[in-house]
Structure formats: C-alpha cells, structure tokens
Amino acid sequence: MDHPPAIVRLTGVDKDYLLGKVVVPALRGIDLAIQPGEFTVIAGPSGSGKTTALNLIGCVDVATRGIVTVDGHDTAKLSERDLTKLRLERLGFIFQSFNLVGVLDAFQNVEFPLLLQRKLTKAERRERVMDLLQEVGIDQYAKHRPNELSGGQRQRVAIARALVTRPQIVLADEPTANLDSETGNAIVDLMEKLNDEGTTFLFSTHDPRVVDRAGRVVRLMDGRIVEDVTRRAVGASRIAQSA
C-alpha cells in the first residue's frame, strides 16, 4: 500500500548546542518520517534528545546539519515570519507546563490562535471553541482562568488550543509529566480519541504507561534513534487491536 506523503521528515539531522566553548551534540544523524494519522511517541531517558527533536519539528529551533521538512517546506529555508506562519497554520503545541496565558480565561486561551489566523468570524470562532471545549470535557469552565483550574483541566484547555486551528500535526512535549497518573491516563485517552478522529499526534515522553499506548514508538538514546517500532497501522482502531 502506498503511504501518503509524510507530514514531517527529518533527514540526516544533527543538532549541536554550544555550552561556552564546548560543543554538545543533542541529536546525531536522525532520519524520521511522520505519516498523517500516526500516534507516535518519542521515548527515551532525560537528555536523550526528545525535546530537541520536537523543537526542530515544531519549527521553534533549527538543525545544525541535515534537512527538516514540515508540510513539504524545508524549515531552514523559511524566514522567521514564514516559520511563525507555518506554526500557526500547520502545527499545534501542547506543553509539559500547559503554558496557558494566565490573564485569559479558558475560552480566550483556546480562541487565541484563531484570532491570530483572522480567518473566522466571531460567531464561527465561538462555535468552534465551544465545540472543542465540549469535546475535551471542560465547556463548563470556559470562563475560568488557568489559576482557577486543576492541572488536568489546564492540559485539556491546552489540547483544545492546540487543536483549534485544525493543524496537520499536534506536538506534545511530555504532556502528562505534571499530572497525576489518573489525570495523565485521562489525557492520553482524550488524545487517542482525537487521533481516532484523524489528528496526527507526536509526543515526547519517558512515561512507560504512555509509551505502552502509542501506535509507534521512536526510542532515542544519546541523540540517536535506537529503536523505531510501529505497533499499530495508521487508522487501525485501538479497539480492534485490543480485540
């Protein structure tokens, strides 16, 4: 079966950081392609390069060597302005510490990317945001500010914000790290459900419970891919798999 073109492709990617005069390699020779609809985890211990890989794919950092393409664009060739536009139009971000805007309520946080896009009318924005808040189960907290929400609720808001622009891929950096196990499981349940509906997820984690539920696991060690296992084909239902 022919694969559709990859949303994200990393070819021979290296990333070095400079600590004073010392060059610290974070990624070495990474080759990776993410297909639409995947539910992929980048796993590995702390310092293995998970977050660096996610930053390169998320266009918030640039590779030292190699090529990173997102939605067919070589990110090294894009201007700062175009990279920002690419993030806005094609990518969704979920952060470990939720990173919500503290002075905006849940509704306004989710609505924010739509305001940056300036594509929808006020009524359309409202409908889409409320639908998403309902889908992630916190529509009753729409008027609450982040400091009035629990960790799980904040992460749900962050997920809704990441999905509101209908991005091609959602990048999540350790999304369950700051949550208790019950809430963490609920968040993964939610992401699985959204993945079933067609959203591509790529997240970094070293939480074994999350890794166990991924469709594909890319394992990093010292900046290199040491394992890349696909457990479930794209589109194959988890329910069918478990049966």
Partner: peptide
Amino acid sequence: TREIGTLRAIGMQRGR
C-alpha cells in the same frame, strides 16, 4: 519569557 515563547510558538508574529 515563558508566555512570550508560548505565544511565539503558537504563531504570534514578532510585531504583535
């Protein structure tokens, strides 16, 4: 700083 980074990451241009 974190808020600025988040806003930039989700697609806010420098001018804004």
